[in-house]
Each structure stands twice: as C-alpha cells, then as structure tokens.
C-alpha cells in the first residue's frame, strides 16, 4: 500500500495529513509551530504516522506547504498554500469556485476551476488587518479564548462600529470602549465586522464563482462565518477541521506528483 503526506507549516500551527493511494485520508495531526519549524514538523508527522499505524519509510511522496515549507529539508516537493488550499477545498467540496483561506498571518481569496486548479487569487498586503492575528490580539485584549471570542459576537444586540482597520489602533480603540463600559459582545461584534469587511473587499477583487468554501483556522470562528454568510447571502462550505485543508491539498498533490 502506498501512502502520501502533506505538511502545512503555518505561522501559528503545523498540520499533517496522511493519505492512502485511494485518496482516503488515513490520519491527521495539528501542532503549534512555535519557534522551531523542524521540531513542530517532527511532532505532527510522528503523531500522524502513529495514528495511521505506519512508518515514515512507507511514505512514497511528501509535499510541504505554508510559510515554513522552505525550511523543511526532507520533503520531495514544496508547493504554495494557495495551490494546496485550492486542491484541498475542491476535494472536499467539488462545487467550490471561490476559496477563502484565513490563517494566522495572512488571508487569501482563491478562485479555482472545476479541477481545483488556481485561476486567480488575492492576498492581504503587509498588514495584519483581516487575518487570524487580528482576532488573536483582540481576544487577548478581552482575555478570552478564540472560540469564546467568536461565539460571544453572535450574542450582540447593538453592534459598535470599530473605525480603525489597523490592529494596533483597533486595540487601543477597544481598550477605550472597554473603559467606557460598553457591552463586550457589542464591541466584539464590531471587531468581527471589521475583519469581515476587509476580507469581503478581497472577495470582490476575485469575485464569487460557484460555491464558497472557507478554510484555515479562522473558519472555526462562528462570528466571522456568520457575518461572511450575511454578506454573501448564502451558506459557506466548511469542513469539520478547516485547518487541515492545506495539508490535505498538499497530500493530494503528493499523490499526483508521485504518479
């Protein structure tokens, strides 16, 4: 039996997906990237291999993606996360035409064709607005976990608009709103709106084509998803583990490249 692995080394987490020759996902693992990419890869890969019950030598082809892809020495091929998210999203939801991937340090909107190949894409510029990092900083200001932070935004009845899109300025705006005793959930809803507005303008550059699929860690944030669906006027496809879509795409590409 042949096995393939995809490794996605992001700014916050590292994911590994192991795939069987018949495209069935055998196992996956997620670990924090931390300060040492190689160690994170060893950890996540070791975990995924033991879950699959196979040894490293049984992997026929490995593809690395994500920001850390360049630093991993033993892989067979390095492919950008843009191509990998396209392939992964297409595999999970074949009707996907537009993929929104929001990770820790950047966000991308990708347009794919019916085979999952990238037609066009756009990314945030050198700025954390509209990325997972923005939400992380804001959740930190409220001393909330990211899950609670997203869920709380749904409880708001009176959204407070946040005027600054800059992460640093938005944080000071939030602190002064907290000092004014404004309701937490209303501020949080405003913050989610700011992120979504930023992403929405990127969606408009690429356009909505077919079904929209969301990948990356921020897809777990209920507040962002709800507001994006409101803008879109429809449902967004989200896999139960949206963080592994890039690694899945990498594993699928590993199989294609091997054959």
């Amino acid at each position: 039996m042949t096995y393939f692995a995809g490794i996605d080394i992001g700014s916050l987490t590292t994911e590994v997906v192991i795939l069987k020759g018949n495209d069935r996902m055998v196992s996956s693992a997620i670990d924090l990237t931390g300060t040492d990419c190689n160690e994170a890869v060893e950890q996540a890969l070791g975990q995924a291999l033991s879950r699959a019950g196979i040894s490293r030598s049984q992997l026929s082809f490995i593809v690395a993606t994500g920001y850390g892809r360049i630093t991993i020495p033993f892989v067979d091929k390095k492919i950008t996360e843009i191509s990998c998210h396209g392939v992964g999203a297409h595999h999970l939801f074949p009707d996907s035409g537009t993929v929104i991937d929001i990770g820790g340090q950047d966000s991308k909107v990708i347009r794919i064709d019916k085979q999952g190949k990238v037609l066009d894409f756009t990314m945030n510029d050198k700025c954390a607005a509209g990325t997972g990092r923005f939400l992380e900083v804001m959740a930190g200001a409220f001393r909330l976990s990211l899950e609670d932070f997203g869920a709380l935004s749904l409880k708001s009845k009176r959204e407070i608009p946040i005027s600054s899109v800059c992460t640093v300025f938005a944080e000071s705006e939030v602190i002064s709103l907290i000092a004014q005793n404004q309701a937490k959930e209303d501020i949080i809803r405003g913050l989610h709106r700011a992120v979504v507005n930023r992403i929405w303008s990127m969606v408009q550059i690429v356009g909505v084509h077919g079904a929209v699929t969301m990948t990356g860690g921020v897809a777990k944030n209920l507040g962002v998803v709800a507001l994006l669906e409101e803008k879109l006027g429809g449902k967004i496809h989200i896999h139960s583990e949206p963080q592994i879509v890039g690694a899945l795409g990498a594993a699928l590409l590993a199989k294609r490249l091997f054959i």
Binding site: Y67, I79, T80, E81, I82, S83, D106, K117, V118, L119, D120, F121, M123, D125, K126
Partner: peptide, 18 residues
Amino acid sequence: RTYSEEQTRTRLEAFFEA
C-alpha cells in the same frame, strides 16, 4: 521597509504554479 519577502515569494510562486 514596506516589502515583505515571504508574502511576495508566496504570491509569485503561486502564480508560477498557476
């Protein structure tokens, strides 16, 4: 100072792949 090497490289490589 306004240039981000990693982000630009990723964009260019994704373009090459496409």
